[in-house]
C-alpha cells in the first residue's frame, strides 16, 4: 500500500509522540512524581500506529493496561493524557481513571483496560453496534499474549465469528505476560494458529515494522468494513521497558533489551526506510522530533501547575448519570 507523504509524516509523528511520552513517563515515575501503576508501550509503537492509521474517530478500539500508545495512535489529546497520569482534574478522565483506564470516547478510544482479557467482549459490543446501526465502522481489540489465554478472549473470538462482526483482534505478543514467557504460556506457540479454529483469517506480523503492520491491518479493516467478519492479527515484537515501571526484569536475558533497542527500534527502522527510499528527509523527521519534545515537556509543565480534583466535589460525581 502506497502511503502519502502526509500519511508518513503523521505515522512518524504518532510513533515519536508515543516514544517521547513513554520515555518521559519512565523518568517521572523514577523520581516518584507519578503515582500508581504505569505500563509503557515504548518499542511497540508500530503496532498501535500501523493499525490505527486505518481508523477514524467513529471506529472503536479497546486497549489493554499498556494503553498510552493506543490512545495517542487513536488521536487522544496528549496534554490531557499527561494531566491524567498526574491525577489532575483536567486530565482526559478528570483524574479518576489514571494510566490504566485512560480513555477518550470522542476519539473512539474505549479505554485502556486493567483487566487482562477484559476488552474483547466489549469490542464485540462495539462491533455489534456498528453492524446493527449499519455505520460501516469497525472495532479493534488490542490484547497481549497474556490476554490471549483468557476465556473471555476465546469466547469473544467465537462470538465475533458466529455473529460475523466487523472486528479485528490484534494480539500484541511482546513475549511476556508480566514475567511469564509466551513461549511457555501460549499453548501451540503462536497465537495466530488459533484463528482457523474460529473460522477467521489469521496473520502474523513483524511488529517492529510499521509497514508490515500497516498492510496487514489495512486488509483486516477492509475485510471488516465489507461485512466479511473478524480477522486475527498477531503482532510479534518486544517491549523496551518492564511489565510496569519498577519491574527489575530479571526474568529477561542479559542484554536482551539493549539488543532490541539497538537492532529493532521501530522508529529507527521507519527513519531508515523512508529516508533511504527518499520518501521523507532526515530534516523532516528531526523537525518532528523537536516538535514532539516541546509538546511533551510542555504537557509535563502544564500538568505540574494544573489543579488537583476537589475531594469535596469530584470524589462523588460521575458514578451515575442520574441516581
Amino acid at each position: 500500500m502506497q502511503l502519502s507523504r502526509t500519511a508518513l509524516l503523521e505515522a512518524y509523528r504518532k510513533m515519536r509522540t508515543i516514544r517521547t511520552f513513554e520515555d518521559k513517563v519512565h523518568d517521572l515515575f523514577e523520581t516518584g512524581e507519578l503515582p500508581g501503576f504505569v505500563h509503557l508501550y515504548a518499542g511497540e509503537e508500530a503496532s498501535a500506529v500501523g493499525v490505527c492509521a486505518h481508523l477514524d474517530d467513529e471506529d472503536r478500539i479497546i486497549s489493554t493496561h499498556r494503553g498510552h500508545g493506543h490512545c495517542i495512535a487513536k488521536g487522544c489529546d496528549v496534554e490531557g493524557m499527561m494531566l491524567e497520569l498526574f491525577g489532575r482534574r483536567d486530565g482526559v478522565c478528570g483524574g479518576k481513571g489514571g494510566s490504566m483506564h485512560i480513555a477518550d470516547l470522542s476519539k473512539g478510544m474505549m479505554g485502556a483496560n486493567a483487566i487482562v482479557g477484559g476488552g474483547p467482549p466489549l469490542a464485540c459490543g462495539a462491533a455489534l453496534a456498528a453492524k446493527t446501526l449499519k455505520t460501516g465502522k469497525v472495532a479493534v481489540t488490542f490484547t497481549g499474549d497474556g490476554g490471549s489465554n483468557q476465556g473471555t478472549t476465546f469466547e469473544s473470538l467465537n462470538l465475533a465469528s458466529v455473529w460475523k462482526l466487523p472486528l479485528i483482534f490484534v494480539f500484541e505478543n511482546n513475549g511476556y505476560a508480566e514475567s511469564t514467557g509466551s513461549g511457555w504460556s501460549v499453548a501451540g506457540g503462536d497465537i495466530v494458529r488459533r484463528a482457523p479454529a474460529f473460522n477467521m483469517p489469521g496473520v502474523q506480523v513483524d511488529g517492529f515494522d510499521f509497514f508490515a503492520v500497516h498492510e496487514a491491518a489495512g486488509e483486516a479493516v477492509e475485510r471488516a468494513r465489507r461485512g466479511e467478519g473478524p480477522t486475527l492479527l498477531e503482532i510479534k515484537f518486544g517491549r523496551f521497558y518492564g511489565h510496569h515501571e519498577g519491574d527489575a526484569q530479571t526474568y529477561r536475558a542479559k542484554g536482551e533489551v539493549a539488543k532490541l533497542k539497538a537492532e529493532k527500534d521501530p522508529l529507527a527502522g521507519f527513519r531508515k526506510r523512508v529516508t533511504s527510499a527518499a520518501l521523507l528527509t532526515a530534516a523532516d523527521l528531526d523537525a518532528i522530533d523537536a516538535e514532539i519534545e516541546t509538546l511533551i515537556e510542555g504537557s509535563v509543565a502544564l500538568a505540574r501547575k494544573s489543579p488537583m480534583p476537589d475531594p469535596k466535589v469530584d470524589l462523588l460525581t460521575d458514578v451515575y448519570i442520574r441516581y
Binding site: L105, P121, L122, C124, A126, L128, A130, T152, S156, L159
Partner: peptide
C-alpha cells in the same frame, strides 16, 4: 434476528458485548 440475538453459551462474551454496545449507541 438483527434485534433479537441468540448467543452461544458465552456469558462473558455477550454480557460484555451488551456493555460495549451500550457505550456505542445501542440500548441492549
Amino acid at each position: 434476528p438483527e434485534r433479537i440475538l441468540d448467543t452461544p453459551i458465552s456469558e462473558s462474551a455477550y454480557i460484555g458485548a451488551a456493555v460495549g454496545a451500550a457505550t456505542c449507541g445501542l440500548r441492549p
